[in-house]
Design a protein around this nucleic acid. Structure first.
Length: 213
DNA sequence: ACATTAAGTGATT
DNA sequence: AATCACTTAATGT
């Protein structure tokens, strides 16, 4: 599969040595997912580690009442930090991963990722670095929750979303946004209206254009 | 033309 | 900031 190797190289080539790319190519399985597809759900045992080649994944957390909230997005060249935690011990997923857009990824069995830690220095630094990045994003998410008002969070959400999709036209309803931010549709509509008034965004039906990037 | 779904708004807590 | 109740606007059949 020549194409796959090229994709691997363009997403991870600058990180990994050739032999590692070879091995990922040999062992990993290629997978594509449609927008909205659930890659991983709460309580599922994690058997594979995904390496994102294309697209974006949104990571959701669920509270004890079953309410969901968006934690962060992962983009190409990233991996899911949950799998890193889980390969250390046999834990189950604490999060739900949903494809934000059509995405392509490589699934690597978790045993392999453990092996590679000892075998490839570049793999080790990749794991450590992405763990660190996730940690930082998590802290950001906590800050946003604790200290930012909802209107600031909303704008950040829109900007993030525009970023991961590489498109300033966001295709979602106010209702969907409200669910991601764990708020209500009415409140989101009002805040969006205000953001439009101050020229940060432009509203359409089922669409929002982000002006201020 | 009508039903359905998304979005906007005032009042209340 | 959330919820209710209602209106208005956009879209599908």
């Amino acid at each position: 599969m020549l194409e796959l190797k090229e994709e691997l190289n363009s997403s991870f080539g600058y990180l990994f040595e050739d032999e590692l790319i070879e091995e990922i190519d040999r062992i990993g399985t290629y997978k594509t997912v449609e927008e909205g597809e659930i890659l991983m759900d709460f309580g599922e045992v994690i058997a594979f580690m995904p390496l994102l080649l294309k697209g974006a994944i949104k990571i959701m957390r669920e509270d004890d009442e079953g309410d969901e909230m968006l934690l962060y997005f992962i983009e190409q060249g990233d991996t899911c930090a949950m799998t890193i935690t889980c390969c250390m011990g046999q834990t189950k997923s604490e999060i739900r991963a949903i494809a934000e857009s059509e995405s392509a990824l490589i699934m690597v069995p978790v045993q392999k990722m453990k092996e590679w830690l000892a075998k490839y220095p570049s793999w080790q630094s990749f794991i450590l670095q992405s763990y660190h990045e996730r940690m930082t994003e998590l802290l950001e998410a906590i800050d946003a929750l604790a200290f930012m008002r909802l209107d600031e969070r909303l704008l950040k959400y829109l900007q993030d979303k525009a970023m991961v999709n590489r498109d300033d036209m966001i295709q979602s309803t106010h209702q969907e946004i409200a669910l991601d931010l764990h708020s209500s549709r009415v409140v989101v509509s009002r805040l969006l209206k205000r953001l439009e008034k101050v020229g940060k965004i432009k509203l359409y039906r089922n669409k929002i254009k982000v002006i201020d990037l």
